[in-house]
């Protein structure tokens, strides 16, 4: 049995947006992007052009779609229930990202702890091969010199952890109505993100092995590469949030866009910590 008051609280109309062109534009964008990418992989001339076109359409779609969401938000169409939907949605999106990285970490674990010892056992095929990490595998003679964990990677860990702190500081500023702290904190976080990406690029350039160098190179570059891509994405999103802060879109009470990006940023932080332990240290 429900109390009538509770019923009334739920009786607000959940905002259902009017028909929108953006989803279909997004589908066309991804189709174009995918077709272009396949053509690039197979060295067809039209590939890069098609990819650029797809990316451009995707960009237009993202601007249009998020623009619509921001306009709706600013005009007060989103009630508490819509806000809860966004929160749940972001939580489950991050969960899907967690599973994506779990797959890669699982592959790393399997390669190191299961496949490697089975390869070493197959002396009939790979005489003299012993299970030792890092390895480029029994069929390649390359010796791998891994990246030293306590150099740039350790510094990068510090960079990302600090960026988490500056972001929390910015959030506190937002909650307590100090716009300067908000903007400064965001700018600092973005700067640290850019610094991280720069150092990663430098590290890639200096590394003594490539993505083609066996399972070590493959897992190293795919794991750190996808993480780096997520940092890049996070930095772009933080920049959007900074611009919206400058435009005064957020109030201490209503600022879900900020919260969502902050969650995402912290998630990327945690992934880096795991990477630092499992890829660089161990």
């Amino acid at each position: 049995m429900q109390a009538p008051a509770e019923y009334a609280a739920h009786a607000d109309v959940y905002y259902v947006p009017p028909p929108s062109i953006w989803p279909i534009v997004g589908s066309v964008a991804l189709l174009t992007l995918a077709a272009g990418f396949v053509m690039v992989l197979h060295q067809m001339a039209a590939g890069p052009l098609l990819m650029a076109l797809g990316a451009a359409i995707l960009l237009v779609m993202l601007c249009g779609w998020f623009g619509a969401v921001i306009r709706e938000s600013l005009s007060g169409k989103y009630d508490a229930q819509v806000d809860a939907s966004f929160r749940w949605g972001m939580v489950w999106f991050i969960f899907s990202e967690v599973m994506f990285f779990a797959g890669f970490f699982g592959a790393l674990f399997y390669a190191r702890n299961v496949a490697l010892s089975m390869l070493a056992d197959a002396q009939l095929l790979w005489p003299g091969f012993t299970a030792a990490w890092p390895t480029a595998g029994p069929g390649m003679k390359t010796a791998i010199t891994p990246v030293e964990a306590w150099g740039i990677p350790a510094f990068n860990t510090l960079v990302l952890l600090s960026s988490g702190a500056t972001l929390t500081w910015a959030h506190r500023g937002l909650q307590r109505g100090r716009p300067l702290q908000l903007k400064l904190g965001l700018a600092l976080t973005i700067a640290l993100g850019v610094l991280f990406i720069g150092l990663q690029i430098h590290e890639y350039g200096a590394a003594a092995f490539t993505i083609r160098d066996g399972i070590y190179g493959a897992t190293f570059y795919l794991l750190t590469g996808f993480h780096g891509f997520h940092v890049l994405l996070g930095t772009v999103m933080l920049s959007v949030v900074l611009m919206r802060s400058l435009a005064g879109h957020f109030t201490p009470a209503r600022h879900f866009a900020f919260v969502a990006v902050a969650w995402y940023w912290h998630f990327v932080d945690v992934i880096w910590l795991l990477l630092f332990i499992f890829v660089y240290c161990l």
Partner: peptide
């Protein structure tokens, strides 16, 4: 891209794909 996730010569394992 020349990786060796599923190629034993590079230390990978085709069965790893099946697990995933």
């Amino acid at each position: 891209f020349g990786t060796h996730f599923f190629d034993a010569a590079g230390g990978g394992d085709p069965v790893m794909f099946q697990h995933l």
